[in-house]
């Protein structure tokens, strides 16, 4: 097993942890962290699998760079929303407090 494949497998493992956290956790910040973990896993798979095909490949690096930027933007947005939500309701989870439709 080449080290690159190892990276990819580690990425898969991270994805699994992240997904579990994302689905099982209630606390909004924890979910956000789980999302970031999931994202890192995906990036690892992207880089690892591609290197495995024979020699360094610059393309995935460029893609992951873009991907990280996107993830940062998403995280920032999520944090703003969570913070505002916490200020307004004092809650840290989305668990239903009466149906919120209006």
């Amino acid at each position: 097993m080449s080290p690159d494949l190892l990276y990819a497998l580690a990425g898969v493992g991270l994805c699994g942890i992240g997904l579990a956290g994302f689905l099982l956790l209630d606390h909004l910040l924890r979910r956000l962290l789980a999302f970031n973990l999931l994202g890192s896993g995906v990036f690892l798979v992207l880089v690892g699998l591609a290197q495995h095909r024979g020699g360094p490949d610059p393309v995935p690096q460029a893609l992951v760079l873009t991907g990280i930027v996107v993830a940062i933007a998403a995280t920032a947005l999520a944090i703003v929303l969570i913070r505002r939500y916490f200020h307004l309701t004092g809650r840290t989870s989305l668990a239903d407090a009466g149906d919120g439709q209006s």
Partner: peptide, 16 residues
């Protein structure tokens, strides 16, 4: 608050 809740749910679904 309700809008934020909906937005957060939407955001998490979309990110996943």
């Amino acid at each position: 608050a309700a809008a934020l809740r909906a937005a957060l749910r939407y955001l998490f679904a979309a990110l996943l």
